[in-house]
Design a protein around this nucleic acid. Structure first.
Length: 225
DNA sequence: ATCCCGAGGG
DNA sequence: CCCTCTGGAT
Protein backbone atom coordinates (compact mmCIF):
# COMPACT_ATOMS: atom_id res chain seq x y z
CA UNK A 1 0.00 0.00 0.00
CA UNK A 2 1.37 3.37 -0.95
CA UNK A 3 1.74 5.82 1.94
CA UNK A 4 -1.47 7.73 2.26
CA UNK A 5 -3.16 5.35 -0.12
CA UNK A 6 -6.69 4.43 0.74
CA UNK A 7 -7.47 0.76 1.10
CA UNK A 8 -10.99 0.28 -0.30
CA UNK A 9 -11.71 -2.32 2.39
CA UNK A 10 -11.14 0.21 5.18
CA UNK A 11 -13.67 2.58 6.69
CA UNK A 12 -13.74 6.05 5.11
CA UNK A 13 -11.15 8.51 6.33
CA UNK A 14 -13.23 10.61 8.74
CA UNK A 15 -14.33 7.45 10.52
CA UNK A 16 -10.78 6.17 10.82
CA UNK A 17 -9.64 9.54 12.12
CA UNK A 18 -12.24 9.30 14.86
CA UNK A 19 -11.02 5.81 15.84
CA UNK A 20 -7.39 6.90 15.82
CA UNK A 21 -8.14 10.05 17.81
CA UNK A 22 -10.03 8.06 20.46
CA UNK A 23 -7.36 5.38 20.69
CA UNK A 24 -4.61 7.97 21.09
CA UNK A 25 -6.65 9.50 23.90
CA UNK A 26 -6.54 6.17 25.72
CA UNK A 27 -2.82 5.75 25.08
CA UNK A 28 -1.86 9.30 26.15
CA UNK A 29 -4.52 10.58 28.55
CA UNK A 30 -2.12 13.14 30.05
CA UNK A 31 -0.82 14.47 26.72
CA UNK A 32 -0.25 18.21 26.72
CA UNK A 33 2.30 20.73 25.53
CA UNK A 34 5.61 19.73 27.10
CA UNK A 35 7.29 23.13 26.97
CA UNK A 36 7.75 24.87 30.32
CA UNK A 37 6.26 28.38 30.47
CA UNK A 38 4.74 30.86 32.93
CA UNK A 39 3.00 33.30 30.60
CA UNK A 40 2.08 33.59 26.92
CA UNK A 41 5.26 35.49 26.10
CA UNK A 42 7.48 32.79 27.56
CA UNK A 43 5.55 30.17 25.64
CA UNK A 44 6.02 32.11 22.40
CA UNK A 45 9.77 32.33 22.97
CA UNK A 46 10.00 28.67 23.97
CA UNK A 47 8.09 27.66 20.86
CA UNK A 48 10.40 29.69 18.62
CA UNK A 49 13.29 27.86 20.27
CA UNK A 50 11.68 24.47 19.72
CA UNK A 51 12.28 24.46 15.98
CA UNK A 52 14.27 21.36 15.02
CA UNK A 53 15.00 20.74 18.69
CA UNK A 54 13.49 18.61 21.44
CA UNK A 55 11.30 20.26 24.07
CA UNK A 56 13.55 18.76 26.73
CA UNK A 57 16.50 20.79 25.51
CA UNK A 58 14.41 23.94 25.25
CA UNK A 59 13.31 23.45 28.85
CA UNK A 60 16.96 23.20 29.81
CA UNK A 61 17.81 26.69 28.55
CA UNK A 62 14.67 28.69 29.32
CA UNK A 63 15.13 29.05 33.11
CA UNK A 64 18.40 30.97 32.73
CA UNK A 65 17.09 32.74 29.63
CA UNK A 66 13.97 34.08 31.36
CA UNK A 67 15.90 34.88 34.50
CA UNK A 68 18.06 37.23 32.43
CA UNK A 69 15.27 38.35 30.03
CA UNK A 70 11.93 38.15 31.88
CA UNK A 71 9.76 39.89 29.28
CA UNK A 72 9.53 41.43 25.82
CA UNK A 73 11.02 44.72 26.99
CA UNK A 74 14.14 42.95 28.25
CA UNK A 75 14.78 41.27 24.89
CA UNK A 76 13.86 44.39 22.92
CA UNK A 77 16.55 46.36 24.73
CA UNK A 78 19.47 44.19 23.63
CA UNK A 79 21.07 43.01 20.41
CA UNK A 80 20.58 39.41 19.29
CA UNK A 81 24.25 38.68 19.98
CA UNK A 82 23.57 39.10 23.69
CA UNK A 83 20.86 36.45 23.57
CA UNK A 84 22.86 33.92 21.57
CA UNK A 85 24.85 32.44 24.47
CA UNK A 86 21.63 31.52 26.27
CA UNK A 87 20.09 29.67 23.33
CA UNK A 88 23.14 28.22 21.60
CA UNK A 89 22.49 24.60 22.57
CA UNK A 90 19.08 24.62 20.87
CA UNK A 91 20.66 24.91 17.43
CA UNK A 92 19.99 27.56 14.77
CA UNK A 93 20.96 29.92 17.57
CA UNK A 94 21.74 32.98 15.48
CA UNK A 95 18.38 32.89 13.71
CA UNK A 96 16.52 32.11 16.91
CA UNK A 97 18.16 34.94 18.87
CA UNK A 98 17.39 37.36 16.04
CA UNK A 99 13.77 36.17 15.87
CA UNK A 100 13.25 36.47 19.62
CA UNK A 101 14.59 40.01 19.72
CA UNK A 102 12.71 40.99 16.56
CA UNK A 103 9.46 39.53 17.85
CA UNK A 104 9.93 41.24 21.21
CA UNK A 105 10.43 44.62 19.55
CA UNK A 106 7.34 44.11 17.42
CA UNK A 107 5.24 43.11 20.43
CA UNK A 108 6.43 46.20 22.26
CA UNK A 109 5.68 48.54 19.37
CA UNK A 110 2.30 47.14 18.36
CA UNK A 111 0.88 45.18 21.28
CA UNK A 112 2.12 46.85 24.48
CA UNK A 113 4.57 43.98 24.95
CA UNK A 114 1.82 41.38 25.07
CA UNK A 115 1.25 38.35 22.85
CA UNK A 116 -1.72 38.97 20.55
CA UNK A 117 -4.55 36.44 20.43
CA UNK A 118 -5.00 36.32 16.68
CA UNK A 119 -3.32 34.28 13.97
CA UNK A 120 -2.99 37.30 11.72
CA UNK A 121 -1.14 39.36 14.33
CA UNK A 122 1.13 36.50 15.37
CA UNK A 123 2.17 35.83 11.80
CA UNK A 124 3.64 39.34 11.65
CA UNK A 125 6.30 38.30 14.18
CA UNK A 126 9.67 37.27 12.74
CA UNK A 127 10.29 33.57 13.29
CA UNK A 128 6.59 32.85 13.71
CA UNK A 129 4.62 30.93 11.09
CA UNK A 130 1.45 28.88 11.44
CA UNK A 131 3.01 26.06 13.43
CA UNK A 132 4.32 28.35 16.17
CA UNK A 133 1.19 30.52 16.14
CA UNK A 134 -1.07 27.50 16.50
CA UNK A 135 0.88 26.26 19.53
CA UNK A 136 0.66 29.64 21.27
CA UNK A 137 -3.00 30.28 20.47
CA UNK A 138 -4.11 26.82 21.58
CA UNK A 139 -1.84 26.33 24.57
CA UNK A 140 -1.80 29.82 26.06
CA UNK A 141 -5.25 31.01 25.05
CA UNK A 142 -7.31 27.89 24.39
CA UNK A 143 -8.02 29.00 20.83
CA UNK A 144 -8.16 26.32 18.16
CA UNK A 145 -7.11 28.49 15.26
CA UNK A 146 -5.78 25.56 13.28
CA UNK A 147 -3.99 22.24 13.54
CA UNK A 148 -0.35 22.37 14.60
CA UNK A 149 1.59 20.61 11.86
CA UNK A 150 5.14 19.88 12.89
CA UNK A 151 7.48 17.14 11.76
CA UNK A 152 5.63 14.53 13.87
CA UNK A 153 2.15 15.46 12.71
CA UNK A 154 3.29 15.45 9.12
CA UNK A 155 5.00 12.06 9.43
CA UNK A 156 2.12 10.37 11.27
CA UNK A 157 -0.51 12.00 9.11
CA UNK A 158 1.14 10.44 6.09
CA UNK A 159 1.90 7.05 7.65
CA UNK A 160 -1.62 6.70 9.03
CA UNK A 161 -3.10 7.70 5.70
CA UNK A 162 -5.00 10.60 7.27
CA UNK A 163 -3.73 13.04 4.65
CA UNK A 164 -2.41 12.81 1.12
CA UNK A 165 -0.50 16.10 1.01
CA UNK A 166 3.12 16.25 2.12
CA UNK A 167 3.49 20.00 2.64
CA UNK A 168 2.46 21.34 6.08
CA UNK A 169 0.02 23.97 4.84
CA UNK A 170 -2.09 21.49 2.90
CA UNK A 171 -1.81 18.87 5.61
CA UNK A 172 -3.26 21.38 8.05
CA UNK A 173 -6.22 22.08 5.77
CA UNK A 174 -6.89 18.37 5.30
CA UNK A 175 -6.73 17.63 9.03
CA UNK A 176 -9.00 20.54 9.92
CA UNK A 177 -11.63 19.07 7.61
CA UNK A 178 -11.49 15.69 9.36
CA UNK A 179 -12.22 16.70 12.97
CA UNK A 180 -14.40 19.15 14.86
CA UNK A 181 -12.55 22.35 15.68
CA UNK A 182 -12.64 21.59 19.39
CA UNK A 183 -10.37 18.58 18.78
CA UNK A 184 -7.77 20.26 16.58
CA UNK A 185 -5.20 21.01 19.26
CA UNK A 186 -5.64 17.68 21.03
CA UNK A 187 -5.15 15.81 17.77
CA UNK A 188 -1.78 17.47 17.24
CA UNK A 189 -0.63 16.83 20.78
CA UNK A 190 -1.64 13.19 20.70
CA UNK A 191 0.03 12.60 17.35
CA UNK A 192 3.18 14.28 18.66
CA UNK A 193 3.27 12.09 21.77
CA UNK A 194 2.79 8.97 19.69
CA UNK A 195 5.42 10.13 17.21
CA UNK A 196 7.95 10.64 19.99
CA UNK A 197 7.23 7.41 21.84
CA UNK A 198 6.38 4.86 19.15
CA UNK A 199 6.01 6.05 15.58
CA UNK A 200 9.51 7.47 15.42
CA UNK A 201 11.00 8.84 12.24
CA UNK A 202 13.92 6.45 12.02
CA UNK A 203 12.73 3.14 13.43
CA UNK A 204 8.98 3.08 14.09
CA UNK A 205 8.11 0.55 16.80
CA UNK A 206 5.22 -1.07 14.94
CA UNK A 207 5.50 -4.11 17.19
CA UNK A 208 4.25 -2.16 20.21
CA UNK A 209 1.99 0.29 18.39
CA UNK A 210 -1.57 0.64 19.67
CA UNK A 211 -2.69 1.86 16.26
CA UNK A 212 -1.33 -1.12 14.32
CA UNK A 213 -4.76 -2.34 13.24
CA UNK A 214 -5.68 1.17 12.07
CA UNK A 215 -2.48 1.90 10.16
CA UNK A 216 -1.92 1.32 6.44
CA UNK A 217 1.84 1.61 7.00
CA UNK A 218 2.06 -1.10 9.66
CA UNK A 219 5.08 -3.32 9.05
CA UNK A 220 6.60 -6.11 11.16
CA UNK A 221 9.72 -4.85 12.86
CA UNK A 222 13.08 -5.95 11.52
CA UNK A 223 15.10 -8.23 13.78
CA UNK A 224 17.55 -6.11 15.77
CA UNK A 225 21.20 -6.71 15.06
C1' DA B 1 15.41 24.40 -3.10
C1' DT B 2 18.56 25.77 0.34
C1' DC B 3 20.23 27.57 4.51
C1' DC B 4 20.48 27.95 9.49
C1' DC B 5 22.72 24.94 13.70
C1' DG B 6 23.76 21.96 18.07
C1' DA B 7 23.13 17.67 20.56
C1' DG B 8 21.85 12.95 21.12
C1' DG B 9 20.67 8.18 19.23
C1' DG B 10 21.70 4.18 16.54
C1' DC C 1 29.25 8.19 10.67
C1' DC C 2 24.27 9.63 9.41
C1' DC C 3 19.71 10.89 10.92
C1' DT C 4 16.49 13.41 13.64
C1' DC C 5 14.52 16.86 16.74
C1' DT C 6 7.06 20.23 17.95
C1' DG C 7 10.46 25.34 11.45
C1' DG C 8 11.01 29.55 9.24
C1' DA C 9 13.11 32.83 6.02
C1' DT C 10 15.42 33.71 1.72
Amino acid sequence: MTPGGENPDWPPRPQRVESIFQKLGQLYPEARCSLDWRNPFQLLVATILSAQCTDKRVNRVTPALFDRFPDAASFAAVEPEQVEPYVRSTGFYRSKARHIVGTSRLLLERHQGHVPQSMEALLQCPGVARKTANVVLATAYGLNAGVTVDTHVRRLGNRLGLVTATDPARIEVELMALLPQSDWDLLSIRLIFHGRAVCKARRPACGRCGLADLCPSYAPEPVSR
